[in-house]
């Protein structure tokens, strides 16, 4: 099979699928498929990733084209949901329930035979531990994400759809979830993880489907896509005192393509984000400037995606 958007043994397929809401086109003529392993659904905010995941689960009907999960359109074949788990981006938990009750509820509705055993296993898998008996209303966003992942996993689904699952998680939780998704992929499950953060997708996925403005921008393995992006500079936002001195000094660095200062904030363009991240503290020390923030700008990511669309 030559088309990198398609896989040999698909469990989830979109065939020329589009979805529009009034005049707004959210997903446009996307043909791709997903199979066992972790696939990253990558795209900037508003690219159509959530709409695509909702189409895949049957929550929304494509305006055109078709969607098949394990060979059927799930809306009319609810039994297929026994093999599908969704972790939506929004809260989507019952605040009056404890995490254990929530996971147990998911197990009961999925028709799991040994509900108690499955609940305990799912909670253990996401390492929720003791807080599992606390009400979800008191949970942080990261803990809610883990509770939702446990609820999605409790029925041992073959297909797992995760919409920005790492949002709100701390670095330890993030690492744990990334390892978990990789393990699930290795076990032969179809894991589709949406994210707007390249680094996250890079760490989790064997394969990437990039979506921009609702269209399929690129597909394939992560290395190939990253290579295609190398000539696109990253844009970094730096907050520091003595910003003009720091800007002038940064311009002397070979890895810096350009610097602008806007309202006291530096916007730096570079081809190597990681190297810049290592170099900035040293440069700041040289000119006696104090850096208070170093953040890759979403706009730079968006420009990368737009570049991919133009290719």
């Amino acid at each position: 099979m030559n088309d990198p958007a398609l896989v040999e043994s698909p469990t989830v397929e979109l065939d020329d699928a589009s979805k529009w809401f009034g005049q707004k086109v959210a997903v446009s003529n996307v043909t791709c498929s997903f199979g066992p392993g972790v696939t990253g659904l990558l795209g900037p905010n508003g690219a159509g990733k959530t709409t695509m995941l909702r189409m895949l689960t049957g929550l929304i009907r494509p305006s055109q084209g078709s969607v098949r999960v394990l060979g059927v359109w799930p809306r009319t074949s609810p039994s297929v949901y026994a093999d599908v788990g969704l972790v939506p981006e929004e809260a989507a938990v019952y605040p009056s329930l404890t995490a254990r009750e929530f996971v147990r509820y998911a197990a009961t509705l999925a028709g799991v035979t040994d509900v108690d055993e499955a609940t305990a296993r799912a909670i253990d898998t996401v390492a929720l531990g003791e807080p599992a008996d606390r009400k979800l209303s008191g949970y942080s966003k990261g803990m809610r994400q883990r509770a939702k992942v446990a609820a999605a996993l409790v029925s041992d689904p073959q297909i797992l759809l995760l919409d920005e699952p790492l949002n709100g998680t701390d670095p330890v939780q993030r690492l744990h979830l990334i390892n978990l998704f990789q393990r699930l992929g290795t076990e032969g499950r179809t894991v589709i993880v949406s994210s707007h953060i390249l680094d996250e997708v890079d760490r989790m996925s064997d394969r990437v489907i990039a979506i921009v403005d609702g269209r399929l921008a690129a597909a394939g393995d992560v290395a190939a896509i990253r290579e295609a992006m190398t000539d696109i500079p990253y844009r970094v936002r730096i907050e520091a005192d003595s910003e003009r001195v720091l800007a002038a000094r940064l311009l002397e660095e070979a890895l810096v393509h350009g610097v602008s200062v806007d309202d006291g904030i530096l916007h730096v363009e570079t081809g190597d984000l990681a190297a810049l991240g290592r170099r900035v503290p040293a440069v700041a020390r040289e000119v006696d400037a104090r850096v208070t923030s170093f953040q890759p700008e979403d706009a730079s990511l968006e420009s990368v995606f737009r570049y991919l669309v133009r290719r």
């Binding site: 929004e90 809260a91 989507a92 938990v93």
Partner: peptide, 11 residues
Amino acid sequence: DGTLSFLVLRP
């Protein structure tokens, strides 16, 4: 609350 999708995505 977004929990309706949780309900309808059950078999």
